[in-house]
Design a binder for these strands. Structure first.
Lengths: 211, 211
DNA sequence: ACGCACATGTAAGCAGTTACATGATTTG
DNA sequence: CAAATCATGTAACTGCTTACATGTGCGT
């Protein structure tokens, strides 16, 4: 007799999948690819996990699975059930998960005085590279919507609200890297001497950038 | 005989703790509070987990624990070891974890056409509230640095680089909410009609905001 | 006397990742 | 005929959260 009830509740990841399935049936493979494409920058999950999650949704009656064949290659096509649609609608009213950011480079800036100026610069350059990749990806999406060639173009009126955010978000990181590299370029070492004077200007500038 | 070697490697969370311990000894409680204060917006972890992580760092020889008493109330004070410092320095050169954002509201925007305009507005208002809290917290930190009253003021020259990012990041979310609420206010329902025309303008504006 | 801040821990569980595993079809 | 892409799954593990649990000391 177990003291805990194991409520196999749906997670936000479940709803991410269900919101795709609400538009049309998808194979697990298609979803893995598409989900990576659309959600990688604000709800990233490993491709592999999607197969498990879909089986779980099937077991919970949120989707139905159907094996299809192309030649002798099988694929499992999932469709949303009325229960799945109902769950999705309920989710739209449920409490919102807190915004969560994991940005290891900021942690390294904190610890930077233990290392070298070159290490700090290298960290910043890695961020620059990562953002460049993100931006290239995002720009391609923007272009698709401008061309009218994006999948689900009829959903563009809501989806571009997301693209709008992402464009700004990436630019925010990029600009921070630029400012910070410019500052660190003037440093010969990581001692506080001669560096504390700029603190006030930096904070005031950040504040005024906001207004 | 197990086939896997369980390498109890240090995680980024370990280094977050070690980077505080590199400055001075801390009690577990102090760290729980301080870490929440400083890292909550770019490397959030549950307070409770810090006690476990510190024990693990102790077992790995990265820190030493010492029981102290104030009256009969005990507290465990942790100090970093030379091995801990060495590990921290190595980390500064190791590969950087990818930037990871979890922003459920964007997922709900994707799924918005299944629900109502009011639900979408409510979601955006929740984000606005969350950002207001973040901003208030951040503003207090900024003020401390300006007053010179922040803990570890001598580290301000690096720490304010982080504060600089955070200020911009929060403003980015806020401005997106403002833009998006303004758009959604003009909507009577969630059909695509009459809404697709603004897509191009939105994408072009986002692009030009960046340059 | 009560409530808040100080102070610490454990056990169970879970969401998600990673490594391992297999095979079919298309394209160059 | 090799490589890329299509296509799917499982077992083990792990980092972290949550619920549960237990006190002390101080201020009002």
């Amino acid at each position: 007799m177990s003291r805990r009830r194991t409520q196999p509740a749906l997670t936000t990841t479940s709803f991410a999948l269900l919101s795709h399935l609400a538009l049309r049936p998808w194979s697990a493979y298609e979803l893995a690819v598409e989900r990576v494409r659309y959600f990688r920058y604000f709800w990233a999950r490993a491709e592999r996990g999607i197969y498990q999650e879909l089986k779980r949704l099937d077991a919970l009656g949120m989707v139905t699975a159907k094996k299809e064949y192309r030649g002798r290659r099988a694929r499992t096509v999932y469709s949303i059930t009325p229960a799945g649609v109902a769950a999705l609608r309920d989710w739209l009213e449920s409490p919102l998960a807190p915004i969560s950011l994991e940005f290891e480079a900021l942690l390294r800036v904190f610890a930077a005085p233990l290392g070298t100026v070159d290490q700090l610069k290298a960290t910043l350059e890695k961020v620059r590279g990562a953002v460049a990749e993100m931006t290239a990806f995002n720009d391609a999406i923007v272009q698709e919507y401008l061309d009218g060639s994006a999948p689900f173009q009829h959903e563009a009126y809501v989806r571009t609200l997301v693209v709008d955010f992402l464009t700004d978000w990436m630019a925010t990181i990029e600009r921070w890297v630029d400012r910070t590299v410019a500052e660190v370029e003037t440093w010969k070492d990581l001692s506080p001497e001669g560096k504390q004077e700029r603190v006030r200007a930096r904070l005031v500038a950040a504040r005024s950038r906001r207004d």
